[in-house]
Write a protein that binds this DNA or RNA. Structure first.
Lengths: 269, 269
DNA sequence: TAGTGGTCTAGACCACAGG
DNA sequence: CTGTGGTCTAGACCACTAC
C-alpha cells in the first residue's frame, strides 16, 4: 500500500521549461498536492514513511529544490515531520484550511457541509469613534461602513457578526444586499484583495445585545474572534468582531519546534 | 535609517565552508535573525522596504538560497510580505512567540514580565478512562499521571490547569515537586522532548470546580485551551486542558494568502 | 528597460540513522 | 558503510513593477 503510488498529478504537467501556468512553473505545488492527497486519502497513514526526496525527484522529473519546498510546506501545515538521516513521517492529521475559509463565514460553512444563513440587523455609513478609527488606521470621525448580522448554520443561530470597513472598501459593501450571502466574495469580485489577516481569540460574556440575538442569558460565555484584514501593502481593509455560541466552533492550531506557528498568546492587562 | 544597516551577525561567522556550528552552516538563520532584529528594534518600521535579495547576498557573502529561505521564514512569521517585481515590505508587527513559550505557562509568564505561581490541587497516578486513553493513544485502563493546579500571574489566579501524562512520561512528573514551577522544564531535563503540539481553543462555561477555584459563578465564560503534545515520532506525551479567566489572555494569529497558517476553525456538532 | 522576486537546475558537502 | 535529509553554491529563465 505504501509502496509505490503513482504521481497522477505530475504526468500532465511534467516537462520543465514548458511553463505550465501564468504564475510560472509550480512543480513544488504539484509535489505537495500529490503528497497531501496521499495523506488525506489515507493512502499514507499517520506513522508511515514518505517517499524519499530522491525518489520524488525521479517521479516528478524535477530537482531537489521543488521537492524540498513541497516538504517544507507540508511540515508547516503540520502534516509531516522530518529529521536528518531519517525518512520523513506522516503525523496525526489536523487539517489546515484555506485562507478563504478562514476569512469568510459563508465559505467556511459550506466547506463543512452546513448551510450558512444570515439575518441583517443593520447596515450604516457613520462616523468612526476613536477606537474603531485606530483599528482601521484612519482618523477618528472619518466615515466607516458597519454591518451587523446574525449568522446561522443549518438555521441555528450561532454567531453575531459585526463588520466595519473604511469608506474606500465600505462603498462596495453598501452596494451589496447583506441578506444575500458572502460579503467576502462580493468584495473580491469588486477588486478588494485581502492579503493577510490577524485574528485575536478570547472568551467574553454575552452583552445584552448578544444575549438577545443568540437567545442566551446575559453574561454567558461566548468565543470572540476579532479580525483585522489587510491588503498586501498593509492598508487595513476590515475590522470585525464575531461572537460564537460555545460548542459551535473551535480553533485548532499546530506548532512544532522546527517551524514555529505564527501564533502568540498574550496577557491582557 | 533604512539605508545601510551593518550586518553585525554576519562578520563573525562569515566564511562559508568553515562550518560555524554543530548542526551545519546556518546562514539563513543569520540572515533571518539580522532582519528580525532590524524589524523588532524599529530600525525597519512597518511599511519600510527590506534590502533586496541580491543586496543581502552581497552583505552576507552568501548565495540566493539561504537568503530566500530567511525571507520565507519571516513571511511565515507574519513579519514581511513579498511579491514579484516589488521589494518586500515590513508588515504591522504581531510578535510570534517561541515554541517553548507556547507550551510552558511558567516560561510564557516570565516572558511577559509577570510572576508565575501555582497551587497544586492534587497529583495522582490513576487508571485512564476511555476518553483520556483515546487522547493519549493508550488503552483504556492503562495508568496515567494527572496533575491539577491553579495557576496565577502576579498572585492573581488566572487559570485552572489539568495535565495528563502516559505513565512513561508521568514517571518524571511524579518525581517532581509540582509546587516548584515549570513541569515542562523538568520534563526537558529528564530527556522528554516535545516536538510539536496541537491546540484547540474554544469557550466554555465554568464547571462547579472551575468556578470555585477561580472565584467566579458557575457557568461564567472561560477560555479553554486543550493541548496535545507529541514527540517527533508522533507518540503522545501530554494531554491537557487549561481554562483561563476572560480578560487575562488571548490568542493572536496571523495568516496570509501566500502562506496559510497551520490553523483551522472547526464546527463542533 | 532595469531591477526584483518566484521558480528551477545540477551539482556539492555534511551530520546523522540504520543496517 | 549506505541512504537520508539539512544546507549551500552558482548559475538560469520568467513575470511583474517601477521608472
Amino acid at each position: 500500500m505504501t509502496s509505490s503510488p503513482t504521481p497522477h498529478a505530475a504526468d500532465s504537467t511534467a516537462v520543465p521549461g514548458s511553463g505550465t501556468s501564468a504564475t510560472g512553473g509550480l512543480q513544488h505545488e504539484a509535489v505537495a498536492a500529490y503528497l497531501r492527497d496521499a495523506i488525506e486519502s489515507g493512502e499514507l497513514s499517520p506513522g508511515d514513511r514518505l517517499p524519499s526526496e530522491s525518489e520524488l525527484c525521479r517521479r516528478f522529473s524535477t530537482s531537489r529544490g521543488p521537492v524540498r519546498r513541497a516538504m517544507a510546506t507540508l511540515r508547516a501545515e503540520g502534516l509531516i515531520a522530518s529529521a536528518r538521516g531519517r525518512r520523513s513521517v506522516v503525523l496525526d492529521t489536523v487539517p489546515t484550511q484555506s485562507f478563504d475559509d478562514l476569512v469568510s463565514f459563508t465559505q467556511w460553512c459550506r466547506g463543512t457541509g452546513k448551510t450558512p444563513g444570515q439575518h441583517t440587523l443593520w447596515m450604516a455609513r457613520r462616523p468612526s469613534d476613536p477606537a474603531l478609527a485606530a483599528n482601521l488606521g484612519i482618523t477618528a470621525g472619518d466615515p466607516v461602513v458597519s454591518l451587523y448580522r446574525l449568522r446561522s448554520m443549518d438555521d441555528e443561530p450561532v454567531m453575531v457578526e459585526r463588520l466595519n470597513y473604511p469608506l474606500e472598501v465600505g462603498r462596495h459593501v453598501l452596494a451589496f444586499d447583506p441578506d444575500s450571502g458572502s460579503i467576502y466574495q462580493h468584495l473580491t469580485e469588486s477588486g478588494v484583495d485581502i492579503d493577510h489577516a490577524i485574528r485575536t481569540i478570547d472568551a467574553v460574556g454575552a452583552s445584552a445585545e448578544d444575549a438577545e440575538l443568540l437567545d442566551v442569558v446575559e453574561g454567558s460565555p461566548l468565543l470572540r474572534v476579532r479580525r483585522r484584514a489587510y491588503d498586501r501593502d498593509g492598508v487595513t481593509l476590515e475590522d470585525s468582531d464575531d461572537r460564537y455560541l460555545p460548542g459551535t466552533v473551535s480553533f485548532t492550531l499546530t506548532s512544532s519546534r522546527g517551524t514555529p506557528a505564527p501564533v502568540s498568546m498574550r496577557s491582557l492587562d
